[in-house]
Amino acid sequence: DIAVVINLIGASGRNLLAGVSRYAREHCHWRIHLFKNGGEFSAKVLADIEVTGLDGLIISDDPAPVVRERIKEIGIPVVVIGMGGVWFDGRLDAICSVRNDDEDIGRFGAKFFSSLGRFRSYGYVPCLDRRYWSLLREKGFRSQLRRVKGPDVRVFRHSPDAGAKQDQEELSAWLTSLPKPAAVMAAYDDRATNVIEAAARAGIAMPESLNVIGVDNDELLCDFTSPMLTSIMPDHEALGACAAAQLERLLARTRKPMARTVLVKEKKLVERESTGATTASAHIIERALAFIAQNARRDITPVDVVKHLRISRRLADLRFHEQYGATIAETITRTRLEHVASKLRETDLPIKRIAGSLEFRNVNSLRNRFLACYGMSMRAWRRDHHGAK
């Protein structure tokens, strides 16, 4: 019998449960007792389960201290989703914590903003009660931007005991003070919606003057805001499955040493309107066009361009299409064909020599591309333009 205590209010909790359930269904034969929050997992409930036997616990939402102490007395294997904290006190074995690599989530957010180009300022908005995962995301965000020599990150510090109205007023004033364009990461989606509301209150245009990202990809929240919120999506289902796998190992009582803390790195970005095209996007296009122009005499590909930009191919093509109306591949082809046309106009070199000098490996393919672009063969184009300035 396994007790699973997960707060199911948010999307992340439901995805955690899906991961635990999937792993248990595919690999174990557990009878699961589900508790939708720590409050449900009361001392009385625990006592009732003990009568029939409790073999292990997966928990992400703390119960009352008396319940936690009773779990320690029983000595059953425990997997904590999140920081182990007080669960580790007095226990040397049969316990493990699994959690998202929150510091890496912060770095991931900073890398995404860097891929958009240059912002004049960067900000971080922590959760109101300064949870460990919020602090780690802040640390990763700041350290990554420091590595690329970006501006110092300005962290919003709300007044203690501030109500919702005062928090919004202070947040609006803080956002107004940031040099624009600004890029702000919030600790999680709910806090990011506060940022978007405060920006609207302050009359700050998004995403032209302010880019915002959150964490969790809670679709109900992300799609409800205006503009819709871009969010980093940790793989909470993978986290839940990892928790179940670690509990299975603890139950097997293997003698192999086990890590006390396991970090899950899986995540992706779900891009929406809060980080749409900005003046920062134009910087990406400028860098890409400069690289293509400098290297157009070589057989370069879009892969070479995105390596130079240090962003994903999908994001690079998205920015190109938004700002330039063409893909990277189309831009490379057109630029290289312009060099071909220049040599046809200015030299008497045979077409095969021109192809070789520009690293076109297949002359027939070059002829077909030129015809598609210029509406005439290379020979006809040379006849009409040779010697022209």
Rank of each mutant, 00 (worst) to 15 (best):
Ser342Phe: 01
Glu271Ala: 14
Leu269Gly: 07
Val155Leu: 10
Arg99Thr: 15
Ser172Arg: 11
Ser121Phe: 01
Gly140Ala: 10
Thr52Trp: 06
Leu344Ser: 01
Asp235Arg: 07
Glu271Met: 12
Phe35Met: 03
Arg382Thr: 02
Pro77Val: 04
Ala47Phe: 04
Leu221Glu: 08
Arg137His: 05
Gly39Phe: 09
Ala277Trp: 04
Asp384Gln: 06
Ala3Arg: 00
Arg314Phe: 09
Tyr122Ile: 15
Leu239Phe: 07
Gln168Val: 10
Phe320Glu: 01
Tyr132Phe: 12
Gly85Leu: 09
Lys139Cys: 09
Ile351Tyr: 11
Ala18Pro: 12
Asp93Phe: 12
Arg154Tyr: 04
Arg361Thr: 03
Arg255Pro: 05
Ala187Pro: 09
Lys44His: 06
Tyr374Met: 09
Arg249Asn: 14
His283Cys: 06
Ser12Tyr: 05
Val303Pro: 00
Lys352Ser: 07
Gly38Val: 00
Leu34Glu: 08
Glu219Phe: 11
Glu286Val: 07
Arg14Pro: 10
Ile105Val: 15
Phe113Lys: 03
Asp62Ile: 01
Val270Ile: 15
Leu16Tyr: 12
Ala198Ser: 11
Glu346Trp: 02
Lys267Met: 13
Glu170Ser: 09
Lys352Phe: 02
Phe291Leu: 11
Ser114Ala: 14
Val363Asn: 07
Phe291Met: 00
Ser209Leu: 15
Arg201Trp: 07
Leu116Glu: 15
Asp189Pro: 13
Arg25Phe: 00
Ile32Gly: 02
Gln246Thr: 01
Leu17Thr: 06
Ala372His: 08
Tyr23Arg: 03
Trp87Asp: 01
Trp133Lys: 03
Ser231Arg: 12
Lys44Tyr: 02
Pro179Ile: 13
Glu103Leu: 04
Ala64Asn: 11
Ile284Ser: 00
Ile204Gln: 13
Arg369Cys: 06
Ile328Glu: 00
Gln144Cys: 12
Ala380Trp: 00
Ala293Asp: 10
Pro302Gly: 12
Leu358Lys: 08
Arg107Lys: 13
Phe360Gly: 05
Arg249His: 04
Met83Glu: 08
Lys44Pro: 01
Arg146Phe: 02
His158Arg: 06
Ala329Thr: 09
Ala186Thr: 01
Ala47Glu: 09
Pro207Leu: 02
Glu170Phe: 03
Leu220Pro: 06
Val264Thr: 10
Glu322Arg: 12
Pro227Glu: 06
Asp104Tyr: 05
Phe113Ala: 13
Val80Ile: 14
Ile300Ser: 07
Thr52Ser: 01
Arg137Leu: 08
Thr254Cys: 14
Leu178Asn: 10
Pro234Val: 15
Arg22Asp: 15
Ile213Ala: 12
Ala199Trp: 07
Met233Gln: 15
Phe370Pro: 11
Met233Thr: 02
Arg319Met: 06
Val215Ser: 08
Ser231Asp: 10
Ala288Glu: 03
Val4Gly: 08
Thr193Ala: 05
Asn364Met: 00
Asp152Ile: 14
Phe156Lys: 09
Arg131Pro: 05
Gln166Arg: 14
Ile332Ser: 05
Gly85Trp: 04
Ala205Gly: 06
Arg255Glu: 11
Gly163Phe: 08
Leu239Asn: 07
Glu69His: 07
Gly117Ile: 15
Lys268His: 12
Phe360Gln: 00
Pro350Cys: 02
Arg313Glu: 04
Thr279Gln: 05
Ile232Val: 14
Lys265Cys: 03
Gln166Asp: 05
Arg157Tyr: 04
Ile2His: 04
Glu169Ile: 04
Ser377Ile: 03
Cys127Gly: 11
Phe320Pro: 02
Ile196Ser: 13
Pro181Thr: 15
Arg14Gln: 14
